[in-house]
Amino acid sequence: MPGTEPVPGPPEPAAPGAPALAGAPARADDVIHDIGFRHYDGTRNGRGWVVRSLLVETVRGVFGLGRPARSKVMPWALIGILLVPPVIIALSILLTHSTEPPISYTQYPGAMQLVVVLFVAGAAPYCVSRDLRHGVMPLYLSRPMRRSDYALAKFAGLAISLFAVLALSETLLLVGALLAKLSVGHQLAGWAGGVLTVAVLALVLSGISLVVAAFTPRRGLGVAAIVTGLLMVSGIVQMLVAIADQKGYATLASYLPALNPFSLVDGIAVRLLGVAPTDNATYPAGAPGLLVFTAVAIVTVGASLAVLVRRYRKGGGV
């Protein structure tokens, strides 16, 4: 879409004598119209500010901030569940005097897969389904914001929230390990790898779940569809890998995990950082493996964004 797209506002009756809206030069970036009642001379923040506000509201809303108390229960309960294991792990290091945490930083999101899936499945429909269902998209789009801005702001908001939650649990793992006096440099390196991994995971999961949510205006169905999709894919990929192994297609079996977001990210981490894989999975060896897995991740995120932007090209109706 062109950069200077005129604001697709509500149909204005072209009353003679009304302030010329469409024709006003160099004022396309704001929508505080002077309709003759009261003047406004303050700053006009424009498109960037709209996008920023939308992003901030999305991030706040995912955590239930600014929403009623019963909307806060679920996200925080799931965050609580995500943060308990690091505490237990820290205690277990202390009690067993081991030199390594029982679960590595990159393995943690995979181990808590179900909770992560539930969190993103609860958050994604919140981000987009209500706007579609209650028909407020035309109101958003009558601001100086492009349709792609809306999609990108929602995507960024969800990805940032998910990353924050996952990075917090990684950091708690690090704190636990450091309190147990494990080697600082080693743990810091592991933590950095973990944070990088969850960043990629947050992008991939946000993309996939937002696409599903954007096509299911009913919130309940959106949650169910995202959870079902992600969990079924994970289970099916495991079975397929086992089948391929059994039939002796070892190469195929090593590339199949790329279809499941969690093992895709795990595969990238294993090849990029040289860490141990989750559940003893095997990933394609060497540079081609890393290349393919990274490409799949990038294509997934890119395709999700493209679908999202396309979804909002066509009106804001249900």
């Binding site: 679920m74 799931l78 179900l114 909770v115 539930l118």
Partner: peptide, 22 residues
């Protein structure tokens, strides 16, 4: 669950999958 709470899907899954396996 869906009569009791609006988070029926999430609570139901936590029970069906996390409860027993984890």
């Amino acid at each position: 669950l869906s009569v009791v709470t609006r988070n029926a899907v999430i609570i139901g899954l936590l029970y069906a999958l996390l409860w027993e396996t984890v």
